[in-house]
Design a binder for these strands. Structure first.
Lengths: 230, 230
DNA sequence: TTCTTGTCACCTAGGTGTTAATAT
DNA sequence: ATATTAACACCTAGGTGACAAGAA
């Protein structure tokens, strides 16, 4: 059996509609997909891997914001924009420690932090290729390495798939829902530079151009309320 | 067969008398021990590991510098200070990718960059424990993982040891030979901050207290040549 | 209008020798 | 006198969202 780590965080994202950035160079997922594993044969070899399947055959687009709400802010809801784009190459990501003994996999949390998502159909770094503006379901597979010579025959019974629906997400090239951005900034250590109210951190240096949360909203309203501003 | 990587660099260090820093927390080696491997069975499993054996049973100490040569500079030669201290726990470092197939080991350089040296006899991070001021010979071992049930019987024939004498070094808590320090600074990317004459880098910012090479020598001579200075 | 790309400042994480203080 | 330790500035290496510019 398998237990999803950081389930509370995944739930929080899922409630808002998780988005994952895809880039040409490849971007890690946040939250990272991590699991605890139970019930393996400690002495047997296993391969651990992930893949991503489309949740539906739809392409999504962001709701157009009515004037005078500026582009900088996106609605939190999605519209179906049509049928899905042609499927991307169905790649698979093997956990880099594969193969390893059951004992090894079970003795600590298994983290897929080397997995990267890309929107580059020609990627040759072995990253997972996804279509932006499409929804995906991560899947986790455990493959028992059968020592028998005719192991191919038993392929069906030698692997098990685990799906956690709370890890579903929309692939995007830029965040659409500002509350997702905020939650990423609040929870990802690498985004600490964008936090504006961390009690642990006061006083701190603000970047020259840094603005408090939501201030961009106030700023972009100016052209509307003050016509002199052009 | 096994080929030592960066042999030219190892030779350069060895000619001066290689020193490796040991710390309580553990310090990596530089140069890093790296090898190319040939002639494995691509389909068989192997464990790769290193250990360190004393070159002799002596304890060394630095030559005392005659006045007025300041302490800051050490001679490049060593004196025998007596018999070796009691042997440290004879630990072994398994390459973290072990076990893996021969094909995997052979397809790229194998680097022991996770290996750390410590002088803490009570270390519980699994680091290699060495006595400071003692000389050591790194050894590299390849163990064939025998699939036979009674594999213990064949232990003798299932491993092979490789020794590169140019990787010998003296364990130290602080560098003794200033030319070793210079060579480390010149060749280790992580020490780039201490380089004073890198043509690739000009112009560059000097640290506030930075001094050109050998300037410490001139400075510490001052108390001798100018008695007013205390 | 909507989406994508590349660059950037700002972080995390951790490997360097230096230095001053301390231990032996 | 000699050896060790801990804090430090300065690096490497690479993960963040912001932003401006470009593409469709």
């Amino acid at each position: 059996s398998v237990q999803l780590e950081m389930k509370a965080l995944w739930d929080e994202f899922n409630q808002l509609g998780t988005e994952m950035i895809v880039t040409k160079a490849g971007r890690r997922m946040f939250p990272t997909f991590q699991v605890k594993i139970f019930g393996m044969d400690p002495m047997a070899d296993y391969m651990l891997l992930m893949d991503f399947v489309p949740v539906d055959d739809k392409r999504y687009r962001q709701v157009t914001n009515a004037w005078p709400v500026p582009y900088a802010f996106h609605s939190s809801s999605w519209l179906v924009a049509g049928k899905a784009d042609p499927a991307t190459p169905g790649r698979v990501h093997y956990h880099p420690d594969s193969p390893a003994k059951g004992a090894q996999w079970m003795k600590q949390i298994v983290s897929f932090d080397k997995l990267k998502l890309t929107n580059n159909l020609l990627d040759d770094n072995g990253h997972i290729i996804l279509n932006s503006m499409h929804r995906y379901q991560p899947r986790f597979h455990v493959v028992y390495v059968d020592p028998r010579k005719d192991s191919e025959k038993y392929a069906e019974e030698n692997f098990k798939t685990f799906v956690f629906e709370e890890t579903r997400f929309t692939a995007v090239t830029a965040y659409q829902n500002h509350r997702i951005t905020q939650l990423k900034i609040a929870s990802n250590p690498f985004a600490k530079g964008f936090r504006d109210c961390d009690p642990e951190d006061w006083p701190r240096n603000h970047r020259p151009g840094a603005l408090p949360l939501m201030s961009a909203f106030a700023r972009s309203r100016n052209p509307v309320s003050s016509p002199a501003h052009q």
